[in-house]
Simulated assay, not measured.
Amino acid sequence: MRQKLRVAAYAVVVREGQLLLARSPGPGGVSEWVLPGGGMEHGEDPYDTVRREVEEETGYLVEVTALLGVHSTRRTFPARFGRTVDHQGVRLVYEARVTGGELRHEVNGSTELAAWQPLDAVSGLTRIRLVDIALRLWRQRPPTGRAEPVEG
Rank of each mutant, 00 (worst) to 15 (best):
Asp86Val: 00
Ala114Lys: 03
Ala147Tyr: 11
Glu53Ile: 01
Arg52Lys: 11
Leu92Gln: 06
Gly39Ile: 01
Pro27Val: 09
Val12Glu: 03
Gln117Thr: 06
Asp86Met: 08
Thr58Pro: 03
Leu20Thr: 01
Thr65Gly: 03
Leu113Trp: 13
Ser72Glu: 10
Leu92Val: 13
Trp138Arg: 07
Val13Pro: 05
Arg91Ala: 13
Thr58Phe: 15
Arg146Glu: 07
Tyr94Arg: 05
Ser72Gly: 12
Leu113Ile: 02
Val34Arg: 14
Val7Ala: 15
Glu53Tyr: 10
Glu112Ser: 12
Pro149Lys: 11
Asp120Pro: 12
Met1Lys: 10
Val85Asp: 08
Arg141Lys: 14
Glu41Ser: 12
Leu103His: 12
Glu56Ser: 05
Arg83His: 06
Val54Glu: 07
Ala8Ser: 12
Pro142Ile: 01
Arg136Glu: 06
Phe81Ala: 04
Arg75Pro: 02
Arg75Gln: 07
Leu113Ala: 04
Thr111Asp: 02
Trp116Tyr: 13
Thr73Cys: 03
Gly89Ala: 09
Thr126Trp: 15
His71Tyr: 15
Thr84Ala: 01
Thr111Trp: 00
Ser24Val: 06
Glu151Leu: 15
Gly39Arg: 11
Thr126Ser: 15
Arg75Ala: 05
Ser123Thr: 03
Gly28Asn: 07
Arg127Lys: 15
Gly26Cys: 01
Thr84Phe: 07
Trp116Phe: 14
Val54Trp: 11
Val98Phe: 06
His71Asn: 14
Pro36Gly: 05
Pro25Trp: 00
Arg80Trp: 11
Arg74Tyr: 14
Gly100Val: 13
Glu151Arg: 13
Arg97Phe: 01
Glu56Tyr: 13
Glu57Trp: 12
Thr99Arg: 03
Ala114Cys: 13
Val150Glu: 12
Trp33Leu: 04
Pro118Ile: 06
Arg74Ala: 04
Val7Ser: 14
Val64Glu: 01
Leu137Pro: 14
Trp116Arg: 05
Gly109Gln: 01
Val93Gln: 02
Val70Ile: 15
Ala115Cys: 13
Val107Gln: 12
Gly37Thr: 01
Glu41Tyr: 11
Ser31Met: 12
Thr111Gln: 00
Gly69Ile: 00
Ala66Trp: 08
His87Met: 08
Pro25Asp: 00
Gln140Phe: 07
Pro142Gly: 06
Glu44Phe: 02
Tyr47Ile: 04
Gly124Val: 01
Leu92Trp: 11
Leu119Arg: 05
Pro142Val: 00
Ser110Leu: 14
Gly37Glu: 03
Val93Cys: 13
Arg74Phe: 12
Glu16Trp: 07
Leu61Arg: 13
Arg129Lys: 14
Val70Thr: 12
Val122Ala: 04
Lys4Asp: 08
Pro36His: 13
Thr84Ile: 09
Glu112Asn: 07
Asp48Glu: 14
Thr111Tyr: 00
Pro27Met: 08
Glu102Arg: 14
Val14Ala: 04
Val14Asn: 08
Val122Pro: 14
Leu137Ile: 08
Ala11Lys: 06
Arg146Ala: 06
Ala147Cys: 08
Arg2Ser: 04
Gly101Ile: 02
Leu92Asn: 05
Glu16Arg: 05
Arg129Gly: 04
Thr73Asp: 10
Trp138Tyr: 14
Glu112Arg: 13
Val64Trp: 00
Leu19His: 07
Glu55Trp: 11
Ser24Leu: 14
Pro143Leu: 15
Leu68Thr: 12
Thr49Trp: 00
Glu44Trp: 02
Val7Asp: 15
Thr65Arg: 08
Ser110Phe: 02
Gly124Ala: 09
Leu35Met: 05
